[in-house]
Amino acid sequence: MRYRAGFALLIALAPACAGVALAFLPKPFLVLAPAAAYAACAIFLLGLPARLWRWTSSPVPFRIPTTCGQQRSLAWIPPARLDNPSTGLAAAARMLLEVLTFRSLLRNSRSRAGDGAVHTRDSLGLWLAAILFHWSLLIILLRHLRLFVQPVPAFVLTLQKLDAPFHTGAHPLYLSDLALLVALAYLLLRRLADPVVRYVSLLSDYLALWLLLGVGLTGVLMRYLVGVDVASIKQFAISLAVFSPVLPRNCGPWFFAHLFLACSLAAYIPFSKIAHMAGVWLSPTRNLANNNRAVRHINPWNAPVKTHTYAEWLEENKDKLKSAGIPQ
Protein backbone atom coordinates (compact mmCIF):
# COMPACT_ATOMS: atom_id res chain seq x y z
CA MET A 1 0.00 0.00 0.00
CA ARG A 2 3.01 2.27 -0.30
CA TYR A 3 1.85 3.38 -3.68
CA ARG A 4 -1.58 4.63 -2.68
CA ALA A 5 -0.99 8.14 -3.98
CA GLY A 6 0.31 6.85 -7.30
CA PHE A 7 -2.49 4.37 -7.77
CA ALA A 8 -5.00 7.05 -7.05
CA LEU A 9 -3.37 9.33 -9.62
CA LEU A 10 -3.63 6.61 -12.27
CA ILE A 11 -7.32 6.20 -11.54
CA ALA A 12 -7.86 9.93 -11.72
CA LEU A 13 -6.00 10.17 -15.01
CA ALA A 14 -8.42 7.78 -16.69
CA PRO A 15 -11.30 10.24 -17.13
CA ALA A 16 -8.87 12.97 -18.13
CA CYS A 17 -7.39 10.80 -20.90
CA ALA A 18 -10.82 9.67 -22.00
CA GLY A 19 -11.84 13.29 -22.31
CA VAL A 20 -8.83 14.25 -24.38
CA ALA A 21 -9.36 11.22 -26.59
CA LEU A 22 -12.97 12.15 -27.20
CA ALA A 23 -11.90 15.29 -29.04
CA PHE A 24 -10.15 13.12 -31.62
CA LEU A 25 -12.78 10.45 -32.06
CA PRO A 26 -15.39 10.52 -34.83
CA LYS A 27 -18.26 12.89 -34.24
CA PRO A 28 -20.92 10.39 -33.15
CA PHE A 29 -18.81 9.66 -30.07
CA LEU A 30 -19.49 13.21 -28.89
CA VAL A 31 -22.78 11.93 -27.60
CA LEU A 32 -20.75 10.53 -24.72
CA ALA A 33 -20.33 14.04 -23.35
CA PRO A 34 -23.98 14.82 -22.60
CA ALA A 35 -24.48 11.21 -21.55
CA ALA A 36 -21.70 11.46 -18.99
CA ALA A 37 -23.02 14.78 -17.72
CA TYR A 38 -26.53 13.45 -17.19
CA ALA A 39 -25.35 10.19 -15.70
CA ALA A 40 -23.08 11.98 -13.23
CA CYS A 41 -25.83 14.40 -12.25
CA ALA A 42 -28.25 11.55 -11.74
CA ILE A 43 -25.82 9.57 -9.59
CA PHE A 44 -25.03 12.65 -7.55
CA LEU A 45 -28.63 13.76 -7.13
CA LEU A 46 -29.89 10.31 -6.22
CA GLY A 47 -26.81 9.06 -4.44
CA LEU A 48 -26.37 11.82 -1.94
CA PRO A 49 -29.95 11.73 -0.63
CA ALA A 50 -29.71 7.94 -0.53
CA ARG A 51 -26.64 8.24 1.65
CA LEU A 52 -28.39 10.80 3.82
CA TRP A 53 -31.40 8.54 4.12
CA ARG A 54 -29.17 5.68 5.20
CA TRP A 55 -27.59 7.80 7.89
CA THR A 56 -30.84 9.19 9.16
CA SER A 57 -32.48 5.79 9.22
CA SER A 58 -30.31 5.02 12.24
CA PRO A 59 -31.80 6.85 15.21
CA VAL A 60 -30.03 9.08 17.70
CA PRO A 61 -30.54 7.11 20.90
CA PHE A 62 -28.67 9.51 23.17
CA ARG A 63 -27.99 13.20 23.21
CA ILE A 64 -24.20 13.30 23.29
CA PRO A 65 -22.92 16.76 22.35
CA THR A 66 -19.24 17.38 22.94
CA THR A 67 -19.32 20.38 25.22
CA CYS A 68 -16.57 22.88 24.53
CA GLY A 69 -17.34 25.54 27.11
CA GLN A 70 -19.29 26.39 30.24
CA GLN A 71 -22.76 24.85 30.57
CA ARG A 72 -25.86 26.88 31.33
CA SER A 73 -26.52 26.22 35.00
CA LEU A 74 -26.64 29.00 37.57
CA ALA A 75 -28.02 32.34 36.47
CA TRP A 76 -24.89 34.26 37.40
CA ILE A 77 -22.40 32.02 35.57
CA PRO A 78 -22.16 33.09 31.93
CA PRO A 79 -22.60 30.05 29.68
CA ALA A 80 -20.70 29.46 26.43
CA ARG A 81 -23.78 29.86 24.26
CA LEU A 82 -22.26 28.45 21.07
CA ASP A 83 -19.81 25.90 22.32
CA ASN A 84 -22.15 24.49 24.90
CA PRO A 85 -25.57 25.24 23.45
CA SER A 86 -28.51 24.87 25.78
CA THR A 87 -31.26 25.31 23.19
CA GLY A 88 -31.94 23.85 19.78
CA LEU A 89 -31.49 27.27 18.24
CA ALA A 90 -28.07 27.71 19.80
CA ALA A 91 -27.12 24.22 18.63
CA ALA A 92 -28.22 25.17 15.12
CA ALA A 93 -26.04 28.26 15.31
CA ARG A 94 -23.12 26.14 16.49
CA MET A 95 -23.66 23.78 13.58
CA LEU A 96 -24.03 26.54 11.03
CA LEU A 97 -20.89 28.31 12.16
CA GLU A 98 -19.06 25.01 12.15
CA VAL A 99 -19.99 24.47 8.53
CA LEU A 100 -19.36 28.05 7.46
CA THR A 101 -16.16 28.71 9.38
CA PHE A 102 -14.78 25.33 10.52
CA ARG A 103 -14.54 26.46 14.12
CA SER A 104 -13.29 23.10 15.35
CA LEU A 105 -10.29 23.25 13.04
CA LEU A 106 -9.70 26.76 14.26
CA ARG A 107 -8.83 25.22 17.62
CA ASN A 108 -6.14 23.11 16.08
CA SER A 109 -2.68 22.91 17.53
CA ARG A 110 0.39 20.73 17.21
CA SER A 111 1.76 18.97 20.23
CA ARG A 112 4.94 17.04 20.76
CA ALA A 113 5.79 15.15 23.90
CA GLY A 114 9.30 14.67 25.21
CA ASP A 115 12.06 16.19 27.37
CA GLY A 116 9.78 16.48 30.37
CA ALA A 117 7.14 18.56 28.65
CA VAL A 118 4.44 18.62 26.03
CA HIS A 119 5.16 21.39 23.56
CA THR A 120 2.01 22.79 22.00
CA ARG A 121 1.77 25.48 19.39
CA ASP A 122 -1.13 26.82 17.36
CA SER A 123 -1.43 25.30 13.94
CA LEU A 124 -3.79 27.01 11.55
CA GLY A 125 -2.47 25.71 8.23
CA LEU A 126 -5.13 23.06 7.91
CA TRP A 127 -7.90 25.46 8.82
CA LEU A 128 -6.66 28.06 6.34
CA ALA A 129 -6.31 25.55 3.52
CA ALA A 130 -9.70 24.04 4.27
CA ILE A 131 -11.48 27.35 4.40
CA LEU A 132 -9.78 28.67 1.25
CA PHE A 133 -10.54 25.48 -0.61
CA HIS A 134 -14.20 25.17 0.34
CA TRP A 135 -15.10 28.80 -0.12
CA SER A 136 -13.28 29.22 -3.43
CA LEU A 137 -14.89 26.06 -4.70
CA LEU A 138 -18.29 27.49 -3.86
CA ILE A 139 -17.48 30.76 -5.61
CA ILE A 140 -16.17 28.95 -8.67
CA LEU A 141 -19.28 26.78 -8.86
CA LEU A 142 -21.47 29.85 -8.65
CA ARG A 143 -19.43 31.56 -11.36
CA HIS A 144 -20.08 28.55 -13.58
CA LEU A 145 -23.72 29.60 -13.67
CA ARG A 146 -22.77 32.10 -16.35
CA LEU A 147 -22.39 29.14 -18.68
CA PHE A 148 -25.74 27.63 -17.90
CA VAL A 149 -28.05 30.62 -17.69
CA GLN A 150 -28.74 33.25 -20.29
CA PRO A 151 -28.85 36.15 -19.56
CA VAL A 152 -26.18 35.78 -16.90
CA PRO A 153 -27.78 36.52 -13.51
CA ALA A 154 -26.77 39.81 -11.94
CA PHE A 155 -25.37 38.25 -8.79
CA VAL A 156 -23.02 36.12 -10.86
CA LEU A 157 -21.71 39.23 -12.60
CA THR A 158 -21.20 40.93 -9.25
CA LEU A 159 -19.48 37.87 -7.89
CA GLN A 160 -17.15 37.81 -10.88
CA LYS A 161 -16.27 41.43 -10.28
CA LEU A 162 -15.59 40.91 -6.62
CA ASP A 163 -13.57 37.80 -7.35
CA ALA A 164 -11.25 39.72 -9.71
CA PRO A 165 -10.38 42.95 -7.92
CA PHE A 166 -7.27 43.43 -10.05
CA HIS A 167 -9.21 43.26 -13.28
CA THR A 168 -6.91 44.07 -16.18
CA GLY A 169 -7.42 43.26 -19.82
CA ALA A 170 -9.59 40.55 -21.23
CA HIS A 171 -8.63 37.77 -18.80
CA PRO A 172 -9.26 38.87 -15.25
CA LEU A 173 -7.43 36.76 -12.69
CA TYR A 174 -9.97 35.25 -10.35
CA LEU A 175 -8.68 35.02 -6.81
CA SER A 176 -10.81 31.96 -6.19
CA ASP A 177 -8.99 30.07 -8.96
CA LEU A 178 -5.69 30.87 -7.37
CA ALA A 179 -6.85 30.08 -3.84
CA LEU A 180 -8.36 26.77 -4.90
CA LEU A 181 -5.20 25.51 -6.51
CA VAL A 182 -2.93 26.73 -3.74
CA ALA A 183 -5.15 25.16 -1.08
CA LEU A 184 -5.43 21.86 -2.96
CA ALA A 185 -1.69 21.76 -3.49
CA TYR A 186 -1.17 22.37 0.22
CA LEU A 187 -3.62 19.62 1.20
CA LEU A 188 -1.96 17.17 -1.16
CA LEU A 189 1.57 18.03 -0.11
CA ARG A 190 0.57 17.83 3.51
CA ARG A 191 -0.84 14.37 2.95
CA LEU A 192 2.33 13.26 1.22
CA ALA A 193 4.88 15.02 3.39
CA ASP A 194 3.47 14.93 6.92
CA PRO A 195 4.44 11.47 8.21
CA VAL A 196 1.40 11.22 10.45
CA VAL A 197 -1.13 12.16 7.79
CA ARG A 198 0.61 9.99 5.20
CA TYR A 199 0.49 7.05 7.59
CA VAL A 200 -3.28 7.22 7.96
CA SER A 201 -4.14 8.14 4.36
CA LEU A 202 -6.10 5.76 2.19
CA LEU A 203 -6.13 5.51 -1.56
CA SER A 204 -9.52 7.20 -1.58
CA ASP A 205 -8.09 10.20 0.28
CA TYR A 206 -5.67 10.77 -2.58
CA LEU A 207 -8.24 10.00 -5.23
CA ALA A 208 -10.50 12.79 -4.03
CA LEU A 209 -7.62 15.24 -4.10
CA TRP A 210 -6.37 14.17 -7.54
CA LEU A 211 -9.83 14.46 -9.04
CA LEU A 212 -10.31 17.91 -7.58
CA LEU A 213 -6.89 19.00 -8.74
CA GLY A 214 -7.61 17.60 -12.18
CA VAL A 215 -10.85 19.51 -12.47
CA GLY A 216 -9.18 22.65 -11.19
CA LEU A 217 -6.11 22.44 -13.39
CA THR A 218 -8.00 21.74 -16.60
CA GLY A 219 -10.35 24.59 -15.80
CA VAL A 220 -7.52 27.02 -15.17
CA LEU A 221 -5.74 25.78 -18.27
CA MET A 222 -8.74 26.57 -20.44
CA ARG A 223 -9.30 29.91 -18.89
CA TYR A 224 -5.80 31.33 -18.85
CA LEU A 225 -3.55 29.31 -21.13
CA VAL A 226 -5.18 27.53 -24.05
CA GLY A 227 -7.88 29.37 -25.89
CA VAL A 228 -11.26 27.66 -25.95
CA ASP A 229 -14.41 28.53 -27.79
CA VAL A 230 -16.47 29.75 -24.88
CA ALA A 231 -19.51 30.35 -27.06
CA SER A 232 -19.64 26.67 -28.05
CA ILE A 233 -19.15 25.52 -24.50
CA LYS A 234 -21.90 27.80 -23.32
CA GLN A 235 -24.21 26.59 -26.06
CA PHE A 236 -23.58 23.03 -24.94
CA ALA A 237 -24.03 23.86 -21.27
CA ILE A 238 -27.32 25.66 -21.84
CA SER A 239 -28.58 22.83 -23.98
CA LEU A 240 -27.86 20.47 -21.08
CA ALA A 241 -29.62 22.75 -18.66
CA VAL A 242 -32.81 22.87 -20.73
CA PHE A 243 -32.72 19.12 -21.36
CA SER A 244 -32.30 19.33 -25.12
CA PRO A 245 -28.64 18.51 -25.44
CA VAL A 246 -26.74 19.38 -28.57
CA LEU A 247 -23.46 17.75 -29.47
CA PRO A 248 -20.52 19.73 -28.10
CA ARG A 249 -18.69 20.75 -31.26
CA ASN A 250 -15.51 22.86 -31.23
CA CYS A 251 -15.08 22.51 -27.50
CA GLY A 252 -11.58 21.06 -27.60
CA PRO A 253 -9.82 18.26 -25.70
CA TRP A 254 -9.26 20.20 -22.47
CA PHE A 255 -12.92 20.89 -22.16
CA PHE A 256 -13.72 17.19 -22.41
CA ALA A 257 -11.03 16.34 -19.88
CA HIS A 258 -12.49 18.95 -17.55
CA LEU A 259 -16.00 17.66 -18.11
CA PHE A 260 -15.14 14.00 -17.57
CA LEU A 261 -13.11 14.73 -14.46
CA ALA A 262 -15.95 16.81 -13.04
CA CYS A 263 -18.44 14.06 -13.88
CA SER A 264 -16.28 11.41 -12.23
CA LEU A 265 -15.99 13.58 -9.16
CA ALA A 266 -19.72 14.23 -8.96
CA ALA A 267 -20.50 10.56 -9.38
CA TYR A 268 -17.88 9.60 -6.81
CA ILE A 269 -19.09 11.98 -4.11
CA PRO A 270 -22.05 9.97 -2.79
CA PHE A 271 -19.83 6.91 -2.29
CA SER A 272 -16.85 8.67 -0.80
CA LYS A 273 -15.82 10.62 2.22
CA ILE A 274 -16.71 13.78 0.31
CA ALA A 275 -20.26 13.00 1.34
CA HIS A 276 -19.21 14.71 4.56
CA MET A 277 -20.76 17.78 2.93
CA ALA A 278 -24.09 16.25 3.84
CA GLY A 279 -23.09 14.13 6.82
CA VAL A 280 -21.53 16.87 8.89
CA TRP A 281 -24.98 18.33 9.52
CA LEU A 282 -26.02 15.14 11.26
CA SER A 283 -23.10 14.83 13.66
CA PRO A 284 -24.68 14.22 17.09
CA THR A 285 -21.71 15.63 18.97
CA ARG A 286 -22.23 18.97 17.25
CA ASN A 287 -25.87 19.42 16.33
CA LEU A 288 -27.55 18.73 19.67
CA ALA A 289 -28.11 20.96 22.65
CA ASN A 290 -26.57 20.04 25.97
CA ASN A 291 -29.88 20.21 27.76
CA ASN A 292 -30.35 16.59 28.79
CA ARG A 293 -31.07 17.41 32.38
CA ALA A 294 -33.73 19.95 31.40
CA VAL A 295 -35.46 18.19 28.51
CA ARG A 296 -35.70 14.43 28.30
CA HIS A 297 -34.29 12.87 25.15
CA ILE A 298 -36.19 9.85 23.88
CA ASN A 299 -34.43 6.72 22.68
CA PRO A 300 -36.73 4.92 20.24
CA TRP A 301 -35.30 1.49 21.03
CA ASN A 302 -34.99 1.94 24.76
CA ALA A 303 -35.77 -1.52 26.11
CA PRO A 304 -36.15 -2.80 29.64
CA VAL A 305 -33.04 -4.41 31.10
CA LYS A 306 -32.45 -6.83 33.90
CA THR A 307 -31.63 -5.01 37.11
CA HIS A 308 -30.81 -6.13 40.60
CA THR A 309 -33.95 -4.90 42.32
CA TYR A 310 -34.22 -3.59 45.82
CA ALA A 311 -36.31 -6.59 46.79
CA GLU A 312 -33.60 -9.00 45.63
CA TRP A 313 -30.93 -6.97 47.34
CA LEU A 314 -32.92 -6.78 50.54
CA GLU A 315 -33.34 -10.52 50.54
CA GLU A 316 -29.55 -10.93 50.43
CA ASN A 317 -28.79 -8.22 52.99
CA LYS A 318 -31.64 -8.28 55.49
CA ASP A 319 -29.52 -9.39 58.45
CA LYS A 320 -26.79 -6.94 57.72
CA LEU A 321 -29.22 -4.05 57.51
CA LYS A 322 -30.83 -5.13 60.73
CA SER A 323 -27.56 -5.44 62.63
CA ALA A 324 -26.43 -2.04 61.40
CA GLY A 325 -29.77 -0.41 62.14
CA ILE A 326 -30.27 0.73 58.56
CA PRO A 327 -34.00 1.12 57.83
CA GLN A 328 -35.34 -1.31 55.23
Partner: peptide, 14 residues
Protein backbone atom coordinates in the same frame (compact mmCIF):
# COMPACT_ATOMS: atom_id res chain seq x y z
CA UNK B 1 -26.44 7.19 14.12
CA UNK B 2 -23.21 8.30 15.77
CA UNK B 3 -21.56 4.97 14.95
CA UNK B 4 -22.80 4.87 11.37
CA UNK B 5 -21.78 8.46 10.69
CA UNK B 6 -18.42 8.18 12.35
CA UNK B 7 -17.68 5.13 10.24
CA UNK B 8 -18.31 7.16 7.08
CA UNK B 9 -17.37 10.76 7.77
CA UNK B 10 -13.70 10.77 8.67
CA UNK B 11 -11.51 12.40 6.02
CA UNK B 12 -8.28 11.43 7.76
CA UNK B 13 -7.23 15.05 8.08
CA UNK B 14 -5.16 14.20 11.12
Amino acid sequence: RSFRLFMDLCVRCG
